[in-house]
Nucleic acid binder design. Structure first.
Length: 287
DNA sequence: CTTTCTGTTAGAAA
DNA sequence: ATTTCTAACAGAAA
């Protein structure tokens, strides 16, 4: 579900709310959520610490803890959510909304972190692909090294963008989705970037002209920045750190618009399968 | 009812 | 070495 703009929105929300608050209780309701570590080890390590900083690379969140060594990685995969609730927003907290369907925890709440002020960070995940994983500060360089360049960082230049594509025999869609080449694009933004750049997603990267590569680079920056401004795209599941939906869905041009008229040329948006993923495009104005 | 689809990606297979 | 396919899971849609 969440791609770079959604994960970045969550990061900013949480960074405003959870920093420097001692974790007084950790509840792992679905041990699969911490599958890389033992449940007891995870709970023991986290209890008593607080978050000093929240970082992000691609779609991966990194919670830098206030001790000498601990970092907690969190990947939301398809349906993961991180929602922060202050005490007064919790059931029984007396808040007027506490009886709505937004009540937490619920069936899909996998992990809960309770802070000293009785606020709680909930990790919800229907499909359970997402996870928390303990790692160490000294291993962070290795974590970052697994990811390619990403928009909004200073090394995201046309030169580096072109270099990442150079010599590959894959489609531009496959390249955009490859996190080792580019960090943070997922299925929605890959399709939207190709549309904006007027490039068909199934085109081999070796066939792209310099002009097309430049357009893909520029549109990727523009769209990711705009999507962050809109606080992400919500189709089904995604919500920000406060449980609110993102509004970029209103600005989508191709994703999930199959059968509808193209907003640029009035052709019909098509949907096919490219690298095993549903892929949307307009054959009228994408070449 | 069954089948297919879904915003991800690690790891196996080719 | 690279690229493609499958599996992990749950629920909504067809």
């Amino acid at each position: 579900m969440p791609e770079l703009p959604e994960v970045e929105t969550i990061r900013r929300d949480l960074q405003k709310n959870v920093l420097n608050k001692a974790i007084v209780q950790v509840k792992v309701r679905s041990p699969y959520a911490t599958r890389h570590d033992s449940e007891a080890g995870f709970v023991q390590k986290m209890t008593g610490l607080s978050v000093s900083k929240i970082d992000r690379i691609g779609k991966l969140l990194l919670f830098i803890m206030d001790d000498r060594e601990t970092v907690v990685l969190c990947h939301l995969r398809m349906t993961g959510q991180l929602i922060y609730r202050t005490k007064d927003m919790l059931v029984g907290g007396g808040h007027s909304l506490s009886k709505t369907k937004n009540n937490l925890p619920h069936k899909h709440t996998r992990v809960m972190f309770t802070f000293a002020d009785e606020s709680v960070l909930f990790f919800n995940d229907a499909r359970q692909f997402g996870y928390f994983r303990l790692t160490k500060k000294k291993d962070l360089a290795g974590v970052y090294a697994q990811f390619g360049i990403e928009p909004l960082q200073e090394n995201y230049t046309l030169e580096n963008f072109a270099a990442a594509l150079n010599g590959r025999k894959i489609s531009i869609k496959a390249a955009l989705l490859n996190q080792q080449l580019f960090a943070g694009f997922g299925n929605i933004y890959a399709d939207e970037i190709c549309f904006a750049a007027k490039v068909l997603p199934m085109r081999s990267v070796s066939s792209l002209t310099k002009k097309e590569i430049s357009a893909l680079f520029e549109e990727s920056k523009r769209i990711i920045a705009l999507a962050i401004k809109q606080r992400g795209t919500t189709f089904n599941n995604y919500v920000d750190g406060k449980g609110k939906r993102g509004s970029f869905v209103r600005l989508l041009h191709v994703y999930q618009r199959q059968g509808k008229p193209c907003l640029r040329c009035n052709g019909i948006i098509k949907k096919i399968r490219v690298v095993q993923r549903g892929t949307h495009f307009c054959s009228g104005c994408q070449g």
